[in-house]
Simulated assay, not measured.
Amino acid sequence: MTITKTTFGFTSSGEEIFKFILKNHRGLQVEVLTYGATIQKLYVPNGDGGVVDVVLGFDTLPEYEAAHPYIGSFIGRNANRLKKEVVIAGEKIALTVNEGESQLHGGIKGFDKRVWDAAIVDDSLVLSLYSKDGDEGFPGNLKVQTTFKLVDLRLEMQLSATTDQPTIVNFTRHDYFNLCSGVKNSVVSHKLQVHAGSYTELDGNMITTGRLVPVAGTLYDFTEVRVVGDADEGFDLNYVLDKTSNKLKLAAQVWAPDSDITLKVYCTQPGLQFFSAKSILLASGKEDYEHVGSPGLCLEPQYFPNSPSHSHFPSTILLPSEVYEEQVVYDFG
């Protein structure tokens, strides 16, 4: 296991950004930026003795600083959408809005746009961030950490936080996967299975209504293995995972016809957002990227969207007496 550090560039405000490269004896390699705790590259061994970079990303820091759909980012304080007003500990809180009348993925300057501190601890990379009270409207000073570790053909990630006031915490990762060897392939031919029997219903503004709807008989049913493109209506939906505890459990599996690489996503969170990226348009990308429809797909472990508005949803309120601790694992075969 090796971890190396290089300079990736300087932000427009002059902050130096580093890239950490983690590689193990199996040939699994992840390259992580201190800008947005971003996974820029993720190389997985294939059956031909080579490796394939299975995530979308950019070659330069200015591309990451420019507007993009959260490519490879850490999302916080809250993944997905929240109404612009929430109630925390009995107090009505006004949040910043960046999508209509809602807040998406932590607001105008979420954790995906922050510069993280970094430390190498044993055989892991630990990134940390301090989010001040009032950040994007959220109360409480929040201390955040995320840890990256390679074990065999698994990328194991810990997501943790503590607060000094009651606040909302719901982190996720927003990595776009494409298991095919080549950046010009679409993921519509990928096969997907999601271990979820229901989903959280949305209104016309993409905000959860509070209803949990069975997937059976709908386009959203991936309880059996299906080709993504067979019913690709532009999926952007939170699934209610078939799990009854916060223990690490298999959430989804992905296969691709032109690749011998498979992906299993394990998580401790109760929900999983499946985003097929049919609508995204990327002007650039790594390795002479050329735009194709649905260039990657996201499987985002999370708590349910807009949870503070629905008391029967698993709570996303973090108290000063508690520690937020979740785990996400990408397991490749």
Rank of each mutant, 00 (worst) to 15 (best):
T60V: 13
C180S: 15
L127E: 11
G285D: 06
E224F: 07
S321L: 03
G229R: 05
T7E: 12
V292I: 08
L250P: 02
F171S: 02
H312N: 13
L61F: 11
T96G: 11
G210A: 14
G9L: 05
T7Q: 08
A251R: 05
V86R: 05
K5R: 13
C267Q: 12
V254S: 07
T218N: 12
G49R: 12
L22P: 00
F18R: 01
A89Y: 04
L150P: 09
T167R: 02
L61Y: 10
E99A: 12
I280A: 10
G50P: 07
R26P: 00
V144M: 10
W255V: 02
L22N: 00
L127T: 07
L155M: 10
V32W: 01
L95E: 08
T316N: 06
G137K: 12
G76K: 03
V254N: 07
G271D: 06
C180P: 00
Q29N: 07
T208W: 03
S294C: 15
V292P: 00
T60R: 15
G76C: 10
Q273K: 08
T218Q: 12
Q145L: 11
I317R: 00
Q327F: 06
E156P: 07
G107N: 05
H310G: 11
S276C: 10
S321P: 04
T7M: 05
V254L: 15
Q327T: 14
E201C: 02
L142G: 00
L237V: 02
A94F: 08
D123N: 14
A89K: 04
A66C: 08
G27R: 03
H25G: 08
S276A: 09
A283W: 03
S131N: 06
F177G: 06
P69R: 05
V183A: 11
R114G: 01
F332D: 03
L127A: 11
Y176R: 12
V121P: 04
Q29F: 02
E15F: 04
V32D: 03
K249I: 04
E290K: 10
A67N: 09
V44G: 06
H195N: 15
L42G: 07
K143T: 10
E31T: 06
